[in-house]
Design a protein around this nucleic acid. Structure first.
Lengths: 360, 360
DNA sequence: CTGAAAGCGCTTACAG
DNA sequence: CTGAAAGCGCTTACAG
């Protein structure tokens, strides 16, 4: 009768019971027809569907979640959503999760442990079914093991913590750093600097900060080990640990490049510090891919277009995001399921690596 | 008594009633003490707080939301979360919203209207308190006016639609494009091409697709109007409308640059197509900031470090995101509040603009 | 195959 | 200042 009016504005949103009444069934039956579970006759289902359409019914997921105990929501806690590596990962996470019917609640921490703790707390209160976290600290992870029943499964992305209890999905950055060093050395370099991005320092420093995250440590250790294997070592003056900001990294790189006997090659551990190194070279009039060789972690969108095209370590970021979701979903199904993953990275040697200048 | 045991794993999560019992008060009183509203004596509050801490109580926001009718969640529907403009905007949105106690549910549409419709539907079902949308289409917006009571306010980001009913926060792209053209013309250019990013086309085309979004149209119209004002016109061969992918845009740019009488300058309407133009120039051995001048929309992180440093139109992306949230929050408070905003963009002329080559 | 009832965990009037 | 009761909108056993 008022079928024509059903979508008029300013009507109270229809509830399940409104649909049920219009279809002349009980709420239970209406729920079954709409939810596609349990048994309903074809004709009942059609009647309910029609009623729902006429009333423009939208299920209240809040109510559904409360009753069913599953929110179909995953919380993502990330260091910096504006970083190109993380945002490609998030894109893959959103994609993979939504295919499975899950939505994503994203929080940013800027790698601050306090904000991470708070983010986890908020997400637990929102009753997410699981958590994907890029942890800010390797040692402080108590907030990540969520004790209550039902347990909230956690998967770490890109980094691990000092607990065997929490699964992670990351790349083999130790091996990747080694690959980069070997590439540089076989091009003839013996003086190789390291520009390392880390949230564990204000500004930048020459010493590795103690609180550095595992992934950062892997990259540094991997580089050092490869160097040692090749009979090389690195001077402290060639190292800088900088926060992940282009401007800060630029200053740090300038120090490296103006040291008495500067390196002829630099390994930069992420997009921001790579940009800093490139900026420093430009400012000092040093030709990249000529006087100075550079390899950077992560194949940022601009890297291949840069002059010279930048040699990079390409990490399988979309696979990493997808794998994190898949692992998390399995853990949501089965609380005892355990399975960390380490994916391989690939060196894409474009044109920012060249033999070192002959002058000595 | 079992205070020490309170955090033991595998206990059922404490509920309000558990806290209430332990503190010897009613649920209502416990809720008031915890929620910080209503009246409670100091000593009662302390007792409740202590009980909550001992039980490691976490409020169930799902239940709270259902009862209170507010989910403290905002839905964000964006074309491409991996685009540097949008992800900086999202960063600002998350920041601003979380300061006000709201969390963000993000969905990606790749500028597909069907996915946008579905995203809005899902978010409504999750009972978000409001929606920030980068709409994929200017004409199809029925799904964005959510009719039921209570109304779900919507703010458009970066784009508007053909409805006066929906508020938006965007930049004055028409003016910005005009500014870019004037900069190019005063450097001496008369042959200026346009490389336009749009989701309204597969691959790329010379004609402007009909379904192009308002922001794209603004940029093209703004450029054309400025050209006309200066007594110049543009040849169709100098125009390409390309989907927002570096590789596609590169091919389109190559066509422009190899046309019989190629332009000496190009205006690129976003990061992806700017990268395409730069890639094309490199491939053709054309020197940017010499033979070819380029201005791009959006100050991507790499733009200032590029060789030559890229001249760009810098849009106030963080302000845009923050403004969208603030507007939305006001609308959530007051359903009748209306207020669109158009922010100004700024031309940052670095070194990719130079006089055209003298040869003719 | 369908329905009546209970209940998820809160908050909101309403009494007192 | 505190408590008993109702209710937000669903789904889940349990009967029939």
């Amino acid at each position: 009768m008022d079928g024509e009016m059903a979508q008029a504005p300013n009507e109270k949103a229809a509830r399940l019971i409104d649909v049920a009444r219009r279809a002349n069934v009980s709420r239970a039956t209406a729920a079954r027809a709409l939810g596609g579970y349990g048994l309903v006759t074809q004709s009942t289902r059609e009647r309910v569907m029609a009623a729902a359409a006429e009333l423009n019914y939208r299920v209240n997921e809040l109510a559904r979640s409360m009753r069913s105990g599953r929110s179909l929501t995953i919380g993502v806690v990330v260091a910096d959503i504006a970083n190109s590596f993380f945002n490609k990962a998030i894109r893959a996470i959103i994609e993979t999760a939504s295919q499975a019917g899950y939505q994503i609640l994203v929080l940013n921490t800027d790698d601050e442990i306090e904000r991470e703790r708070n983010a986890v707390k908020v997400l637990i209160e929102k009753r997410v079914d699981g958590l994907i976290v890029v942890p800010a600290s390797q040692g402080e992870y108590e907030h990540l093991v969520v004790e209550s029943e039902p347990e909230v499964p956690v998967v770490l992305l890109d980094r691990r913590v000092d607990s065997g209890e929490i699964d992670f999905v990351m790349t083999d950055d130790r091996a990747a750093a080694g690959q980069a060093i070997r590439c540089l050395v076989s091009a003839g370099h013996t003086r190789i600097g390291l520009l390392v991005a880390t949230a564990a320092v204000q500004g930048y420093s020459q010493e590795m900060p103690a609180a550095v995250v595992g992934t950062v440590r892997d990259r540094v250790d991997g580089a050092k080990a490869a160097l040692a294997e090749l009979g090389l070592s690195a001077r402290p003056e060639w190292y800088r640990f900088s926060q992940s900001r282009v401007e800060t990294a630029r200053k740090a790189a300038i120090e490296i490049l103006t040291s008495p006997e500067p390196p002829t090659a630099i390994l930069a551990t992420n997009e921001d510090v790579a940009l800093g190194a490139l900026g420093a070279a430009a400012e000092l009039g040093i030709e990249v891919g000529g006087e100075l060789s550079i390899i950077a972690f992560d194949d940022a969108p601009w890297a291949g277009v840069f002059r010279p095209p930048l040699s990079v370590i390409r990490r399988p970021v979309a696979s990493l995001g997808a794998a994190a979701v898949e692992l998390l979903l399995r853990k949501i199904e089965d609380g005892t399921y355990r399975n960390s993953q380490i994916l391989e990275a690939e060196l894409v040697n474009r044109q920012s690596v060249a033999p070192p200048p002959a002058k000595r």
